[in-house]
């Protein structure tokens, strides 16, 4: 099977170029296996990867124009020749490795931790199964970055717009019955860019390898803001 891969080594290249590799496909092969095979053919080919089962979030790449996690993408599903590029919109460090610092900064900016003002109980803070269910579809995010780097609003304003990942996380804490910083969290988002640059293009929903829905989470935040304003 033919793979056309984006190459760039700042030590020797002035700009990225595409290179074709032929990889023998085995039954059940994932894209990550194919990338590892390419690395066997040419060890200077670099990409991030680790768990191989879609939980560590290291190996997000752009495949035939769509952001995906390589380790859970069966090559049998892909149209040949397979074009593999780094995530769009991020500075390329080398080959498929991009600089994700802006993405992590936006994650940190939503203060992604549980805030509790009441004194802690001796045992667990109680939470009903129904309240816990509200976190399903939110806490599973693996920070792979597929969503935010597929979002045109994030491409234009990565410093100002939180992006789908960070906003999903913001809602994960707003939705948690244990969290006691709702007002502060909402106040922080009340300005033109951080939240409101989302134009419901929904690329994020389409590409999320975990099937999460950041657009819906953003809708929930806006709804809660409105409710609070009334």
């Amino acid at each position: 099977m033919k793979f056309i891969v984006s190459r760039f080594n700042p030590d020797s290249d002035s700009k990225p170029y595409m290179q074709t590799f032929e990889v023998e496909v085995r039954c059940g092969m994932m894209l990550r296996d194919a990338l590892m095979e390419i690395k066997r053919q040419d060890e200077s080919f670099a990409f991030r990867h680790s768990c191989g089962e879609g939980v560590c979030g290291s190996d997000g790449v752009n495949v035939n124009g769509t952001n995906r996690l390589a380790c859970i993408t069966p090559v049998a599903e892909l149209k040949e020749p397979v074009e593999i590029r780094p995530f769009p919109g991020r500075p390329i460090i080398r080959e498929l490795v991009v600089d994700m610092s802006q993405f992590y900064e936006q994650y940190k900016a939503v203060e992604p931790w549980l805030v509790r003002k009441d004194p802690m109980p001796e045992q667990e803070i109680l939470q009903s199964p129904a309240d816990r269910d509200k976190l399903d579809g939110l806490y599973e995010c693996i920070l792979c970055g597929c969503c935010s780097t597929a979002c045109p609003s994030f491409w234009w304003n990565p410093e100002k717009f939180h992006g789908p990942q960070a906003l999903l996380t913001a809602w994960r804490f707003l939705a948690d019955s244990r969290d006691q910083a709702t007002d502060r969290r909402l106040d922080e988002l009340e300005e033109p860019y951080k939240l409101f640059r989302c134009h419901t293009i929904m690329n994020c929903v389409e590409v999320c390898p975990k099937g999460l829905n950041p657009t819906q989470a953003i809708g929930h935040i806006k709804h809660l803001m409105l409710k609070k304003a009334i």
Binding site: W113, L126, P129, R132, D176
Partner: peptide, 14 residues
């Protein structure tokens, strides 16, 4: 749990 781990819950909230 106090730090925020989203543990699954029993009917009594534990």
């Amino acid at each position: 749990e106090h730090n925020g781990v989203p543990f699954s819950r029993l009917d009594n909230g534990k």
